[in-house]
């Protein structure tokens, strides 16, 4: 089976004034469909930088990124937006929900940009909320939900458009350990349903849920174990 994600010699150099900083110095790895990958490494080792490139939010300075066999590098902005919308789902450390907006409306957002009709949007959003165990909370605003619940809303939002890959950058970073376990349980369930998950964490017990661990140090991969 062909890889969902294939990175070849990805480099990312940040330019700040006359200073240059290489956050990624040649990263190569691929992910097969249905894998659950944990990316680990010390703070500042380039994990988020790599995730942003995987998420088509940022472009590498050099190297090749194939998503579903398509080279992302040469695509125009609108095409990247479409990929983010249909192929990828994001879960952030800080949840990144829209404030003063009901849970169900937050979950509907990707469907709005996908042009899904209102009625279908609502059904699918409610189904996604049910799946993450938030049935009955659909009208709560983020401020009326606990951290774990907010992250569940974010996960529902990430999976509502049936993406191939869910990208999660430290999804449990802001949560206590028991809530973290719940979230990881949810990820495991989703992964069993066939969704590829790539997750950044620096907690070994969280990484233990993943089937594969890639370790970064100073912009390079120093370990890749199953």
């Amino acid at each position: 089976m062909s890889d969902v994600i294939a990175l070849t010699d990805i480099r990312r150099v940040f330019i700040m004034g006359d200073q240059q900083f290489a956050a990624l110095k040649g990263v190569t790895f691929s992910v097969s469909p249905g894998e659950f990958v944990a990316i680990m490494g010390a703070s500042g080792s380039g994990k988020s930088t790599c995730m942003n490139i995987l998420g088509c939010l940022d472009l590498p300075t050099s190297g090749r990124y194939l998503l579903d066999g398509v080279d992302v590098g040469g695509l125009p902005g609108d095409k990247l937006a479409e990929i983010r919308n249909r192929r990828l789902g994001f879960v952030f450390q800080g949840f990144n929900l829209l404030a003063r907006t009901a849970a169900v409306e937050n979950v509907e957002l990707p469907l709005i940009y996908a042009g899904v009709p209102a009625r279908e949007r609502r059904t699918r959003a409610l189904a996604a909320l049910e799946m993450v165990g938030l049935a009955g909370k659909e009208n709560n605003h983020p401020s009326q939900l606990s951290g774990g619940q907010q992250q569940r809303v974010a996960i529902a939002r990430a999976l509502v458009n049936e993406p191939a890959v869910i990208l999660a950058d430290e999804p449990t970073g802001n949560l206590d350990s028991s809530t973290s376990e719940e979230i990881m349980g949810l990820f495991t369930t989703l992964n069993r349903q066939g969704i590829t998950i790539i997750m950044v964490t620096h907690e070994p017990d969280v990484a233990a849920y993943a089937g594969r661990r890639i370790t970064f140090r100073d912009g390079l991969i120093i370990g890749d174990t199953n």
Binding site: D78, L109, Y113
Partner: peptide, 16 residues
């Protein structure tokens, strides 16, 4: 700005 970022990450095009 953050809201704009979220919308973009979720699939909003520049024109949206």
């Amino acid at each position: 700005t953050r809201e704009i970022g979220i919308r973009m990450a979720i699939g909003a095009r520049r024109n949206d």
